[in-house]
Design a protein around this nucleic acid. Structure first.
Lengths: 182, 182
DNA sequence: CGCCCCATGTAAGACGTTACATGATTGA
DNA sequence: TCAATCATGTAACGTCTTACATGGGGCG
């Protein structure tokens, strides 16, 4: 297998396919839209871009000029486009499905036995609060970006929102099982 | 902050709190129950155990004897129990919430624009198939282990199942939006 | 002039992955 | 006895994290 590409690498390819960006602009996307959990750190993005360039999947062109900040715009090559398609077309595997939300659930699963029911309740309450404050911002993102998104992009966002709504329902239900018999 | 502990580390602490295990037994748990997405590879587990031991959170005792395979049983120390509790009691943060199921959704979000609607449909179909075959095994796990699990463990499993059911519903709904106008 | 933001990078360290290596014991 | 399984590791490699470093440009 030739050099594997990380999730971050594919996220970068996907963003660059839409429109050419500099590394800094890509960072801002990861920070702002929070669309992803990908690292916005320069120590992750710049090396990743260089790797993609060395593999011939993207090409960077330095833009310079008077009264212009030096920066490097990256765009996909034909090879990069092909690799992105190849990756997209892979069938979904069990392992991919399993890799969902880990840490919080692990904490909760262990909480009652290791720290008592009150710890479980606290986790559920803070989870509920976090979701309640996060969901509206996601819905707002959906409404704002809906016109610009391709159908699959919109659906993916909706999937995230529904997943969180589902989790919120579960948290409320789980809380009721702790009521009255702490 | 003293040496940070990885997710895998906390998973190991959680399992060892329930009952002392050897490294090999821990590996088997990760392989078999698929309870987690944690690595079952010796290259991950044994170094992680040694790190925990060096931090004084667990202690290993080698069991040997005639007609007995040499193996090392690990158990939590008081310090390890305390650290596990401390971690469990941390409030849930936004970042923790966001870190859910990444790769498949990224693929799907990019699919329509980068590879056409038929690629989107194929992802949805294989996701649906994978979920349809995975969910029953999860439900079976829940039924089998229900008696032995603490309440929070059972609820965590239920949360996973409900999340996948939710995702399956979404996949079906998403598929309908692609019907008739490929 | 000084400060903050743009924009890019590097270095040290930790962790996980993959692959390989080692022996002992059970069971056919 | 021969293979499979038990049980534990090691080595190379790549990636991410954290933190620091560097410069130019806009702005008060």
């Amino acid at each position: 297998m030739r050099e594997a590409i990380s999730d971050l690498g594919y996220a970068l390819l996907g963003l660059l396919r839409q429109n050419p960006c500099s590394g800094y602009e890509l960072r801002k996307i990861f920070v702002a839209t929070a669309m992803m959990s990908y690292s916005d750190s320069p120590g992750a993005i710049y090396p990743a871009l260089r790797r993609l360039e060395q593999q011939g999947l993207i090409r960077g062109r330095i833009e310079e000029g008077p009264g212009l900040r030096r920066r490097q715009m990256f765009r996909l090559t034909a090879k990069g486009t092909a690799e992105l398609k190849r990756w997209i077309k892979r069938p979904v595997t069990r392992e991919e499905v399993v890799h969902c939300g880990r840490e919080v659930m692990l904490r909760f699963a262990l909480s009652e036995a290791a720290a008592g029911p009150s710890a479980s309740v606290k986790i559920l309450e803070s989870l509920e609060a976090e979701l309640a404050s996060y969901l509206p911002s996601l819905r707002q993102q959906l409404n704002e970006q809906k016109p610009m998104l391709p159908r699959s992009g919109r659906l993916a966002l909706e999937s995230g929102i529904q997943g969180y709504e589902c989790l919120l329902e579960w948290a409320k239900y789980a809380l009721t099982t702790y009521c009255g018999k702490e």
